[in-house]
């Protein structure tokens, strides 16, 4: 086929998506978030002492880090879904979160006796957390990947991984409303593993599903 013949065919296909990518992605996030909220309320529910707990620094940190991860990674995926658009200020999101976490871990280590560190890290419901964060993140991950298919991610694996991190952040934010293990040590290890698993899944799915 000659190139000008291809162009003749292309110009006759007038179908074009009219939704802005931002809208599609936000819609995916909202639907995914709804799925997570439903699953959370049906299966888990809020921790009984949430009202007082949410004012403590440790619980606040869990929420801030999870929601921060959600926002930063959703922003990054949006940038990466448009070819040729620079990442811009979003690139500082991940280091900022890492810095915040490192500071929190350091503070925890300084504030608590070394003998208690291992108990704080292991918490009470580690395996529960490990299983539930990915379960809560599954809906948002599927919705985000579906939304990203409308874009043109130049690096499908990376975009999939970031979608996984955003979905993991969403799952973790909800799970944090239930979870009673509040130490930053627990957060880094078990939330980290749970979210990391979702990111890995997103990367694998993205490599195949986000090609265009």
């Amino acid at each position: 086929m000659r190139t000008n013949e291809l162009i003749s065919a292309l110009v006759q296909d007038q179908a074009m998506r009219r939704w802005r990518l931002e809208g599609v992605l936000l819609c995916g996030l909202a639907i995914g978030g709804g799925m997570t909220a439903l699953g959370f309320l049906a299966g888990l529910g809020l921790r009984p002492d949430l009202e007082s707990a949410v004012m403590t620094l440790r619980v606040l940190l869990k929420l801030v880090v999870s929601l921060g991860l959600l926002v930063v990674c959703a922003g990054l995926t949006l940038r990466l879904a448009r070819p040729g658009v620079p990442v811009g200020g979003w690139r500082w999101g991940a280091p900022a979160l890492a810095l915040l976490l490192a500071g929190a871990v350091a503070a925890e280590l300084l504030a608590t006796p070394p003998a208690s560190w291992s108990a704080r890290m292991m918490g009470q419901n580690a395996l529960f957390c490990l299983a539930l964060i990915p379960a809560l993140a599954a809906g948002p991950l599927a919705c985000l990947l579906l939304a990203l298919r409308q874009g043109a991610p130049i690096r499908p694996g990376l975009s999939g991984a970031l979608a996984g991190l955003a979905a993991g952040g969403m799952g973790a934010a909800f799970y944090a409303l239930h979870c009673i293990d509040d130490s930053p040590l627990f957060l880094v290890v078990w939330y980290g593993l749970g979210i990391g698993f979702v990111a890995l899944l997103g990367a694998v799915l993205g490599r195949y599903w986000l090609r265009w």
């Binding site: 291809l6 292309l10 296909d13 074009m16 998506r17 009219r18 939704w19 990518l21 879904a81 448009r82 070819p83 409308q150 874009g151 043109a152 265009w212």
Partner: peptide
């Protein structure tokens, strides 16, 4: 072809 199908991006 990609430019055509992804022009909304």
């Amino acid at each position: 072809l990609a430019i055509h199908l992804k022009r909304h991006t």
